[in-house]
Amino acid sequence: MDAGEYLETAVRDVLTAPEARLDDRIGYAALLLAVTGALEEADRLVTQWQSRTERPVTALAPDPVRARAWAMLFEARGGRPEWASGLSPLDLDAEERAHTASLRKPVSDLDGVLPPGPIAQVVQHVAPSRPDRVRTALADGDLESWASLTGPHPDVATLAATRALAPALVAGADPLGLRDWAPACAGALVAALHERYPADLGSWPDLVGHILRLRGTGALPPPASEASIRSAELRLGVELPEDHRDFLRTCDGLPADVVFPRLLGTADLRAENGVVVLADPAVLLLSAGHVVEVDPVLGTSVHSSFRAALVKHATLLAQAS
């Protein structure tokens, strides 16, 4: 499996494909992440898909094999994540018997050649058949052989639905060798979901509230008073841009999170070398009406406004959530 090519196509579909195709992409990707042992990444992707689309989780398991796959993974991990409450419980013993029979079922090179009907049924009975080597590897519990035989689009649903193998998958067997790639995959797909279904961030309380929800933290910090904003401006010797004043009127600073520094409140704003330091550490600077972001890894970028910097922050935080 070419992980880079797969992810490029998957992101494109999440951004532009019809919703049914998008759901199929997310459902496959979530199972792909799960069979690498990246269960938290799978949960993150599905949770973000639910949040953005508000569609029922059954859309990610539209057929018996995918539903069975999730059921076996839930058993192996010892419980269901919160997002899976909408999936119906299954009789795992019955599902295991049905799945084992399907893995051992012979196949023919003529399967799928003819449209369904009486002629196809006759041909199916008389055509030469053979074991399916990929499915036989799963039935034999041979993950290494399965990985070597599977094609560019591995059938991860059938893999995960194999009850005897699910514990090894959950434990990190990672037959496709994609574990290190999993966070980047989940992050890219989550970012694409947020681009396709942007949150309504029209007001400052909406934007800050969205950031706090992504962080999973508590209530909105208290706002700054007009007097404290004006006092800060007098101390700094500059008039703050109106959007930064609106931020301070919404909350007098924000603590740091996994992708952003602490945003300073009115009491901590300071001027250094002709610029206003907006964050601690000093990676956000106000200069000539623009917000300059200094990233030691990604370099320096200039935002048209303080709000633009926070919108970017919300996007990055969504990828990390």
Rank of each mutant, 00 (worst) to 15 (best):
D257R: 08
G253C: 09
V276L: 02
P281L: 01
L284G: 01
V292A: 06
L284Y: 10
N273E: 15
A279I: 00
A271N: 08
V276I: 15
A279D: 01
H290Q: 13
L263W: 13
G289F: 07
L284W: 10
V292E: 01
L286F: 05
D257L: 09
V276E: 08
D252C: 15
L286A: 06
N273P: 06
L284R: 13
D257E: 14
V291S: 06
D280P: 03
D295P: 03
T266L: 02
R270E: 02
V275K: 13
A282F: 00
L269W: 10
V294P: 02
E293N: 09
D295C: 03
C251Q: 12
A279F: 00
V294Y: 07
L264M: 06
A288T: 15
V275F: 06
A271D: 10
L278A: 04
D268M: 08
A267H: 13
G289S: 10
L264D: 06
G253K: 07
D295I: 01
V291M: 07
D280K: 00
V294M: 14
V283T: 13
R270V: 06
P261C: 14
V283E: 08
P261Y: 15
L264A: 05
N273T: 10
N273C: 09
R270K: 09
G253D: 13
P281F: 00
T266K: 09
D280E: 15
L284E: 03
L269G: 03
V277G: 01
F260G: 12
V292Q: 01
C251D: 04
A282Y: 01
G253R: 13
E272L: 05
A288L: 15
V276H: 01
V259M: 04
V275Q: 08
G253F: 09
E293C: 07
L285N: 05
G265I: 10
E272Q: 09
L286V: 06
L254E: 07
L254M: 14
A267K: 10
G265C: 08
F260L: 03
V258S: 13
A288H: 15
L285K: 02
R262T: 11
F260I: 04
E293A: 10
V283Y: 00
L285C: 00
R270S: 03
D252G: 08
L254C: 11
G265F: 10
G289C: 06
V259W: 00
L263V: 12
G253E: 08
A267R: 15
H290D: 12
P261F: 14
L285T: 07
T266S: 13
V258N: 02
G289M: 09
P255H: 11
V277F: 03
R262V: 12
A282L: 04
V292C: 02
V258E: 13
V277N: 01
L269I: 05
V283R: 07
D280F: 00
L263N: 04
R262F: 02
T266D: 11
L284T: 03
V291F: 01
L286H: 12
D295L: 06
R262G: 02
V283C: 07
G274E: 05
C251T: 11
D252N: 15
S287R: 15
V276F: 01
A279T: 09
P261Q: 14
P281D: 13
G274T: 14
G253M: 15
V259H: 03
F260T: 10
A256P: 09
A282M: 05
H290P: 07
L285A: 04
T266V: 14
D252M: 14
G265K: 08
L269Q: 05
A271H: 11
V283M: 01
V283D: 03
G253H: 08
